[in-house]
Amino acid sequence: MSATTFPGRSAAARPSTRSRLQATFNKRALLWLAIGLFLFLYIPILILIIYSFNDSSQIGLWAGFSLRWYGELFRNQAVLDALKLSLWVALWSTLISTFLGTLTALALERHNFWGKITYDAILYLPVIIPDIVMALSTLLFFVVLGVALSKYTILIAHVAFNISFVAIVVRARLADMNSTLEEAAADLGANEWQSFRRVTLPLLMPGIISGALLAFTLSLDDFVITFFVAGPGSTTLPVRVYSMIRFGLTPEVNAVSTLMFLGSTLLVIISLVLQRR
């Protein structure tokens, strides 16, 4: 590669070399842009993580490494209760929305029915409309129906938005799946249920699991909608964190946020790995 050894001379001598250099420059510029964006996105999180190990009760002052705040966290009953509720909501909303979302995906991908196109469009709404609108409308819905807010209203709200995400993920998998496989199963004597259980479901499983993990993560991380529809005493972890910072930023908040970040990241990674399979 003499062209890279003497860039100036070669570039002047041959236009083709110049365009190659231009391409190399573009590639480098793109790389730096990507790195810059990455730093922009993750430096705040990195700072948060670093300061969660800070042995000082003042947030901006570094006083040496310590696991003190993690210890405090696990002695804080309010935080532990919030975590327990968060996990309860996440688990149940995942189970319910995965079941319903998978059925929705099957209906949309494999069957024709009246109003399918409209239904299809509406399904994407919870994904694109702002959380605050979802939150307000869900709250209004409960108020109009006269339903008392509790942990069950949180659960219902979470199921409502999770169905969309699960359905979209499962449907993508289903669209990739050749429908002649189901015909082949029928041809070999399998009725609809046998065909679903022995052929469709096993092939769909990676999609269903990744949809479920996504739902679990979303439920665990949701603040806005939960904040609106939570009943008195029903506090999930993100809502608890919010109320903690109202009394001032403490390193304890950093610690709990770090743990939430790591947990969510892990779930997303598992979900991505499963989707690639």
Binding site: N178, T180, L181, E183, A184, A185, V199, L203
Partner: peptide, 8 residues
Amino acid sequence: FQNYALFP
């Protein structure tokens, strides 16, 4: 079947 449709 044309594309065999074997269960993968």
